[in-house]
């Protein structure tokens, strides 16, 4: 079952390559921020699953809203002449690492529990 998201990732990449769609350079920053938001959502979802508090509504809405909001923030920042997208980058970046840290800890704890050793 774990291979399904990986397969999805590969499928998405394949579609992107085959479709050969290109976006204007001006919108490149919006897309990059959207990618960051998506990554944040994915890792947030994995964390929630590991913590057994996953909610698909929160997950999907989080992905859509975060992505759109980040893109909107980037657009607003460009209009105002302030690099507002940096705020999104920082926020998503910090959360990404936090999520990764939590996932790592949980994974580590489970592995320890499985090997029968008590946590230090």
């Amino acid at each position: 079952m774990i291979w399904l998201p990986v397969l999805g990732l590969i499928l998405g990449a394949a579609i992107g390559l085959v479709a050969n769609v290109s976006i204007p350079v001006a919108y490149s920053s919006y897309l990059s921020i959207a990618i960051l938001a998506a990554l944040d959502t994915v890792f947030g979802g994995i964390r929630a699953t590991l913590e057994k508090s996953f909610d698909s509504t929160v997950f999907l809405s989080g992905f859509i809203v975060n992505t759109l909001l980040a893109a909107l923030l980037a657009f607003l920042g460009e209009q105002l002449g302030v690099d507002l997208y940096l705020a999104a980058v920082v926020a998503f970046g910090v959360r990404l690492f936090q999520n990764l840290a939590v996932i790592r800890r949980i994974a580590f704890r489970r592995w320890k529990e499985r090997s029968g050793k008590p946590m230090g």
Binding site: M1, L4, L9, V21, I35, V42
Partner: peptide, 21 residues
């Protein structure tokens, strides 16, 4: 898993798009 697969597909697509663009 299905949500993650969907999101992953989208993520893969966006990543490819970004890299090729």
């Amino acid at each position: 898993m299905w949500s993650l697969t969907g999101i992953s597909s989208l993520l893969g697509f966006m990543l490819t798009l970004q890299l090729t663009s």
